[in-house]
Design a protein around this nucleic acid. Structure first.
Lengths: 140, 140
DNA sequence: CTTGACCCTGGAGTAAGGTCTAGAGTGCAA
DNA sequence: TTGCACTCTAGACCTTACTCCAGGGTCAAG
């Protein structure tokens, strides 16, 4: 049987030991087996679960999104539920990307107006910021 | 002379009163005048400064970036210093946008593989997350 | 003179996602 | 048997940018 301590499991999943305990506290992990001395004993599936968490995080899911996905997995949710979460996340990402792109363009336009020489008085970037209109999409 | 209390200044700048005090504590504001009773007295320049902060925030600068920009303004910094900050921020934005776009594409590819019917076992999205390779750019 | 709207300070609480500490027990090699 | 790495728990602390609270003073209107 493949049973490893928290240190090895954390390393295998590329996560810090403290973070593994934190995920357990947050309800993202199934209660692991314990040794006689009370050490957590993780098996392959636990490690896969940790990797799933790490990768889902890399896809920008929050821990509560991930908890929900894991609940679906544990509780026999349906694919359509999973797909709905994915679509929601994609919509979020699209929104965020549009927002950042708009900011980038606004700032870039200011930067191009500035020749970069001279004192700060009258600097087009500073003055441009004063004049920025705060569009709804630019509000965080 | 244009001297207003914190409530009016906050309103003029579109910021909460508590937030104005917070900015003062964080060193973003010049120490305002005080009335005999100890009330802060803001003038037009103070309000402009608050507006500058709000707009710079809308451009995605952090408060510490903004503090630095304000120090440049106060201390006679040069345009090249301001431009450098702007470019740094643009580079940040570009990086973030690329990152989110990569995530979006990865997730979208998974989502398209899922017909959305059936139980969760074998769901391409779940399995795809397991297989996501975590590229350096995808790490937050 | 009272009422209500404002203002003051210091300090605590919030969200998200960890990270660290103290104090104590465990496991294994030399 | 000592020593060191590892593990346990509960709970405090971190970052960013606020937001709220208690307990008290101030100001203008009626």
């Amino acid at each position: 049987m493949y049973r490893i301590n928290i240190g090895a499991a954390a390393k295998a999943a590329g996560i810090a030991v403290d973070t593994v305990r934190y995920y357990e506290r947050e309800g993202l992990l199934l209660q692991p087996q314990r040794s006689a001395a009370g050490y957590r004993q993780f098996d392959r599936r636990d490690v896969e679960r940790l990797q799933f968490i790490r990768r889902a995080k890399a896809l920008g899911f929050t821990l509560s999104d991930i908890a929900e996905l894991l609940r679906l997995q544990d509780g026999g949710g349906s694919r359509s539920q999973v797909r709905a979460k994915a679509r929601e996340r994609i919509a979020n990402l699209d929104h965020k990307i549009r927002e950042l792109t708009a900011i980038r363009e606004a700032l870039s336009a200011l930067e191009e107006k500035c020749h970069g020489r001279g004192s700060i008085a009258g600097c087009p970037i500073i003055e441009g910021v004063q004049a920025v209109s705060i569009a709804p999409t630019l509000e965080s």
